[in-house]
Each structure stands twice: as C-alpha cells, then as structure tokens.
C-alpha cells in the first residue's frame, strides 16, 4: 500500500516546478531533444514499474474477487460468480467481523499510544540531555528488527510456562494464547517497535525547526508547553502528516507479528491474515481471498485519498 501514493506525489511535485519556473528550462516544449528523452525515460520507466507492480495486480485482484478459482489451470477454469464472494465475506465468514474490529483497535492503539509516546520521547531527546545518544539508540533499536523477530522476542517474555512475565509476576495468564488478552499483548509489542519509529522521524523534524522561533517564543514569555503546541507543532505540519499516514499504514498492513504468533487465528484475526490464509497455502480460495483483499484496498484508499488531498493542498499553498 505504501507505494500507492508515491507515484502521484512525484508526479505532482515534478510537474509543479516545471510549470511555475518561467525562466531556466522554460516550458516542456522548449526542452532539447536529449532532455526530452531523459525526462520521458525518468517518468516513463517508474510509471511502467508502478503500473506493472502495483496497479495491474490491484486491478486483477478486484477482477478475481468476482470469481471462483482454485489457482490451478488456465484462465478458462475460472468461474465468474458475481458478488457471491462479497456476500459470503459479510454474511458467511465468522472471522471477518473480528478481523475488522481488530484492525480498528490496532489503529486506535497506535494512534493513542505509540504515536504520542514517540512524539513525547522525541521532544525529550531533543533537549540534549545527558546520555541522549544512548537513549536514542536504545529506543530506536526495535525498529531495526523485523516484526516477525519482535514477535518471537516477546514470546520469550509472554510464554505461559517459561516466560519472563509470568515468572516475575507469578500469574498464569497465557498471553499469546488467551483470546481475551493476546491482541493486547501483541499490541504492546507492536507499540514498543512503532514508538521508536515515530520518535526517530519526529526527532529529525524537531532538529530542523529553526531555533530562533523558540527563542522568540521564550522572549515573548511562552512556557515550554505553549512553545511546543503553539509554535513547534504547527511548524512541523509536514512531519505530522507523514507520521499520521505512517500510523494509518502500519495499522492497515499489520500482519507479520500476528502471523508469527498464531497465523492470525484465535483472537488475532486481521484482514491481512485472512487474505493470506485464503490465498496462500493449500486452501487457494483465490476469489474469496481477493474479495477480502479488495475490501482492504477500499479501506486503505480512503486514507490514501485523504492524505493526497492534504498533500496536494500543501503543494498548492
């Protein structure tokens, strides 16, 4: 999903300066032959790649979502069944409702916990405190690890019989197995990683804020809190949007950690895991899985569209 918005952005960004700049290269028509070839290659090759790797599969997925196919044999073995798959997803597939709910909880948790915490840590680290470098590396370390590995590491903490958590607290809770708690246990692990990611992004943004703005705020008698919310935060609008979008994307594409724990069953259903377990593997309900994927695509498109609107407005401003 990440790559969905990139081509359009690059498109608009590269178009805008060309139109605005009257001097320099002038309009497209006045480019030299070599330049024109270079430009068309630089635009054309990535566009073809994006079409081939993103849009064609996406469109085919949508098309296949109206089919019944086991993934074996040629196109002639595909049976077209209209909206049957969608009807089944919504009315006749018990894991779907929990999956949707879990994705929403995932988004909410990243939004209220991981992202604010990351921002908070970034602000603290920006204070150039003693040992800041150390904390920064320590907090960023989880981001370097893949989520699959994160899931495994937390398994050592969560394991019912041999885990650290139960050994220390003496509880008997099965953190990854009990469907009442496993989603939250996994979310803690996810937030642990996501926080570092947001922190680093935000820290980079904070370093770029013009120090004179803060000084001016101080001179005007603004408190720390006021300075941050009234001055720094508005200045960092582009970073804020990036962080927001990352939060949405991470929530929607959440998959690996849950897959490592129990293949997204028993309390850990996510739309992405349902897509995988229907399409990959022996099951091969290609049509049904594509319908799930299409639903996921539709939901992500809403966020992508929102982001594009904000980003485009930004460009115009």
């Amino acid at each position: 999903m990440t790559s969905l918005e990139t081509p359009v952005i690059t498109g608009t960004r590269s178009n805008a300066p060309v139109k605005k700049r009257k001097g320099g290269y002038g309009s497209l028509g006045r480019l030299s032959r070599g330049d024109r070839i270079a430009v068309s290659l630089m635009l054309g090759v990535p566009t073809l790649l994006v079409l081939w790797l993103v849009w064609v599969p996406a469109v085919l997925s949508v098309v296949l979502s109206f089919a019944s196919w086991q993934g074996i044999g040629g196109i002639d073995t595909i049976r077209w069944i209209g909206f049957e798959n969608y009807k089944n997803v919504f009315t006749n597939y018990p894991p779907f409702a929990p999956a949707l709910e879990h994705n929403v909880i995932w988004l909410a948790m990243l939004f209220v916990l991981a992202t604010p915490l990351g921002v908070f840590l970034a602000v603290l680290l920006d204070k150039e405190m003693k040992g800041g470098r150390f904390y920064q590396s320590a907090l960023f370390l989880p981001v370097v690890l893949s989520l699959a590995l994160v899931g495994f590491m937390w398994q050592l903490i969560y394991s019912q019989d041999q885990g650290l958590l139960n050994a220390v607290t003496g509880s008997k809770i099965d953190w990854y197995g009990d469907p009442k708690v496993n989603l939250w246990a996994v979310l803690v692990a996810t937030c642990w990683r996501q926080t570092g990611y947001v922190m680093l992004l935000y820290l980079a943004g904070l370093k770029a804020v013009d120090p004179s703005l803060r000084e001016a705020a101080k001179v005007d008698g603004a408190s720390e809190t006021q300075t941050f919310f009234r001055v720094v935060l508005p200045v960092m609008r582009p970073i804020n949007i990036v962080v927001l979008v990352i939060t949405f994307i991470e929530a929607l594409r959440a998959f690996d950690i849950v897959w490592v724990v129990n293949k997204g069953r028993n309390g850990l259903e996510l739309i992405s895991t349902l897509v995988t377990s229907n399409i990959i593997g022996e099951a091969s309900r290609i049509g049904f899985g594509s319908a799930l994927a299409t639903i996921m695509l539709a939901i992500s498109s809403v966020f992508v569209a929102l982001y594009l609107r904000i980003a485009l407005r930004e460009d115009k401003a």
Binding site: Q70, P94, P95, R265, N266, S277, N278, G281, E282, A283, S284, R285, F288
Partner: peptide, 11 residues
C-alpha cells in the same frame, strides 16, 4: 483443504 483450513480450524 480450503474447507479444512479456512472453515474447520476457526470453527
């Protein structure tokens, strides 16, 4: 296999 893995296991 599709029935066993996507229906029976969750059920």
């Amino acid at each position: 296999p599709d029935f066993a893995s996507t229906v029976i296991i969750p059920a």
